[in-house]
């Protein structure tokens, strides 16, 4: 039989399977059941989100935005946020890519070791990891104490309350997302492809550049977007590990809320952060499916 005929069969089968898809229009059972759930999300999440936007423009007015953007501290934190997010994304990529590659292309023991390390870190909450880095990095912390005991240094190394510490902490927290995103894609590349390239005389570096890198690019892109967007919202880690100049937008918002002199101001800041995230995602959506990125975020947590 011709392909067209089997196509018809498939279409009819799909229709046939639909004890639910076919049938009369109007409200169906699942819509009826799902509508209250939708309403709960709209009320419990949509309304709060709407209030942020609404208050930012009405309490007392759009002057919130001019005030916020006129505030040098906020402006600085905005640029710092982007700067740190970019730096953390790059660091996560540089460290995470080889990690994902080795995890996908090595024996059972190595893979298990890397996977366990990844999961242990993933499953420890961000707050606790922040605390741990504090324990490790502070002047009386593990690293400085050990180095002093070994006689390598006299005065503690300046490895806390600065951008370095903030970046170390954030990179360690964000790299796992990137690793998982890239790992999923490298696993999908048949190893034979690499063997074939090497068999045809390509050097390892050439093979990597012409085979693995292009094929894993979607994972890299998804991972980077995810990490960058998450980094934009970070503030507790840079606040605890960084110095006064590592002030993120999130911190400004949280402080503005706690002070609560002008809620509209905090809301305006929140909207600006939201816009920033939205811009990144909208730009991404032009060349990849957002749901793919979000799935990566969910498989992790």
């Amino acid at each position: 039989m011709s392909g067209r005929d089997s196509g018809v069969a498939e279409v009819t089968d799909l229709a046939a399977v639909g004890i639910r898809r076919a049938g009369r229009p109007g409200i169906d059972f699942w819509t009826l059941l799902g509508t209250p759930a939708m309403l709960v999300v709209l009320v419990a999440f949509g309304v709060p989100l709407f209030m942020v936007v609404y208050k930012s423009a009405t309490d007392p007015g759009l002057v919130n935005y001019t005030d916020v953007m006129g505030d040098p501290v906020f402006r600085k934190s905005l640029f710092k946020t982007i700067e740190i997010a970019v730096a953390a994304t790059l660091a996560a990529l540089l460290l995470g890519y080889p990690y994902a590659y080795v995890m996908a292309r090595s024996g059972r023991w190595m893979r298990s070791f890397l996977l366990v390390a990844l999961m242990v870190s993933f499953w420890t909450s961000l707050l606790i990891r922040t605390f741990a880095w504090q324990v490790l990095l502070q002047n009386t912390g593990v690293i400085n104490t050990e180095l002093k005991r070994l006689g390598l240094i006299d005065t503690p190394l300046p490895i806390i309350r600065n951008e370095f510490a903030a970046l170390v902490g954030m990179t360690q927290m964000l790299a796992p997302f990137l690793i998982l995103a890239v790992y999923a894609l490298i696993r999908a590349i048949p190893p034979e492809l690499e063997q074939a390239a090497m068999g045809m005389g390509a050097r390892r570096s050439t093979m990597f550049r012409t085979v693995v890198l292009p094929l894993s690019m979607p994972g890299v892109a998804a991972g980077c977007v995810l990490v960058f967007v998450l980094a934009l919202g970070f503030y507790i880690t840079p606040q605890v590990l960084g110095g006064p100049s590592e002030r993120m937008v999130g911190q400004s918002i949280a402080e503005a809320v706690h002070a609560f002199v002008r809620p509209g101001l905090a809301c305006a800041m929140a909207v600006i952060l939201l816009l920033l995230v939205g811009l990144v995602l909208a730009a991404t959506a032009r060349f990849m499916r957002l749901s793919d990125i979000l799935k990566m975020g969910s498989m992790s947590e």
């Binding site: 999440f45 309304v47 709060p48 989100l49 709407f50 209030m51 942020v52 967007v229 934009l232 919202g233 503030y235 999130g250 918002i253 949280a254 809320v257 905090a266 809301c267 929140a270 909207v271 952060l273 939201l274 995230v277 995602l281 979000l294 975020g297 969910s298």
Partner: peptide, 11 residues
């Protein structure tokens, strides 16, 4: 999932 926690938090 995509709204930063601090933004959702204020809301």
């Amino acid at each position: 999932m995509i709204v930063p926690l601090v933004v959702a938090g204020i809301g």
